[in-house]
Computed example of a mutant assay.
Amino acid sequence: MKKVLVISDKNEARSQMAEKWLNYYGKKHLKVWSAGLEKGRIQVMAQKAMAEAVMDIPEYKSKTISEISEKAFDFVLYLDKELENRIPTFECDPEIVGFDLPNPAKLEGEENVKQQAYHAVCNAIDDICFSFVQDRFQIVS
């Protein structure tokens, strides 16, 4: 079983979404965690976008990397180019894979516009996770 850590700045939305999608597509072949460089709070709009994709995450809690008991990962994914030079060093020398997705929490505007941004990011993360699992493990049918 391969171990994957998804890192974000505060573990509030995108990394939580990716954790759920990777667990879904990786089924029994991957063990996935998400964590932030610092702790935030789960974005309600992220939960709503995932629920509408039939991927509920209400039980997910924001956590930091130091709160993850597992320390040996095969892959570390980050979803924001701003984190590229802030990824901590891991003893296990995992493969680091970066993506650059907009942070919907930074969007200004009306609630419906913000929610559309969360939906767009949710869909993009779905695509990224599907491709990641299929390209590396060929376990998605």
Rank of each mutant, 00 (worst) to 15 (best):
F75W: 13
I125T: 10
N112F: 11
M50H: 05
L30R: 14
E52L: 11
K10E: 12
F99W: 08
Q134P: 03
Q134E: 06
M50C: 07
D126H: 05
K106I: 01
I7V: 11
T89A: 07
A13M: 04
W21F: 15
V32A: 12
L37N: 02
M50F: 03
I139T: 15
G36W: 05
D56T: 10
N103P: 01
E38K: 14
W21A: 01
I65L: 07
K61H: 09
K61Y: 03
E70I: 07
E70F: 10
K106C: 02
A35M: 06
N112E: 13
A124H: 08
E84G: 03
V54C: 15
K10C: 09
F99I: 07
V44Y: 14
F90I: 01
P102W: 02
G109L: 07
I96F: 10
A49G: 14
I7K: 02
E38M: 13
E12R: 11
E108H: 08
Q115S: 12
I65W: 01
F99L: 09
D9I: 03
E110T: 06
R136L: 10
M55H: 15
C122Y: 04
D93K: 13
Q47W: 03
V4H: 08
K10V: 11
E91S: 14
L77S: 12
Q47H: 05
A51G: 09
F130D: 02
V54N: 15
T89K: 04
F99E: 08
L37F: 02
R14Y: 05
L30M: 14
H119W: 12
Q47T: 12
I87A: 05
A53H: 13
I42C: 14
M1F: 11
P104T: 00
I68M: 00
Q16K: 06
K81Y: 04
Y24F: 14
A35F: 06
Y78K: 08
K71C: 07
V121I: 11
P94G: 12
V44I: 14
F90L: 00
K20D: 11
K114A: 05
E95N: 12
E82V: 07
E59K: 08
I65P: 00
W21P: 01
V6E: 04
C129D: 02
